[in-house]
């Protein structure tokens, strides 16, 4: 594969071809069903049966193409954005403060001055915020 093709464009082309094929199959299936009903009207039961089988299998094929399980999603993988929060606590006045993570933070780091008293605040926890389930 060439490194230059963008993944989205490639996927879209494939989609377009699939869509065209689906439309053709769908049209043929419709015609077939129509002929089936016509034959049924002429009391040609066997012919009608055959056309209806062809027509329905066409629709089944389209349905399968739509709903088949896809092992990988189409969207390109991106590194997730993480919402990480740091909790600081002051051992002297028990002030608790939560802020966004900054580079250089680590658990048990204690060099941030307390905003309420003279003490130093200790980082007691760093973790991602609870994610809202999709």
């Amino acid at each position: 594969m060439s490194g230059e093709t963008s993944p989205i464009a490639g996927g879209a082309t494939q989609n377009w071809i699939t869509l065209a094929a689906m439309i053709i199959v769908g049209a043929l299936a419709l015609v077939s069903l129509y002929m089936g009903f016509q034959a049924y009207g002429n009391e040609d039961i066997e012919i009608a049966f055959m056309y209806m089988i062809i027509g329905t299998s066409g629709f089944i094929a389209i349905g399968y193409a739509f709903f088949r399980p896809k092992p990988t999603s189409m969207d390109p993988l991106k590194t997730k954005k993480f919402d990480v929060i740091t909790t600081l606590e002051c051992p002297q006045c028990n002030l608790k403060r939560v802020r966004a993570f900054q580079r250089g933070d680590y658990i048990y780091k204690n060099d941030e001055p307390c905003t309420r008293c003279e003490g130093k605040m200790i980082i007691t926890s760093i973790h991602t915020r609870k994610e809202e389930k999709k």
Binding site: K80, F101, D105
Partner: peptide, 24 residues
Amino acid sequence: ILPLILQQIEAYSSALTAFREGMP
């Protein structure tokens, strides 16, 4: 094994963020 590999790769890609920032 593609689904399992994808899972592992996603894990490693989150590791990039963690190690870049020094997060636990």
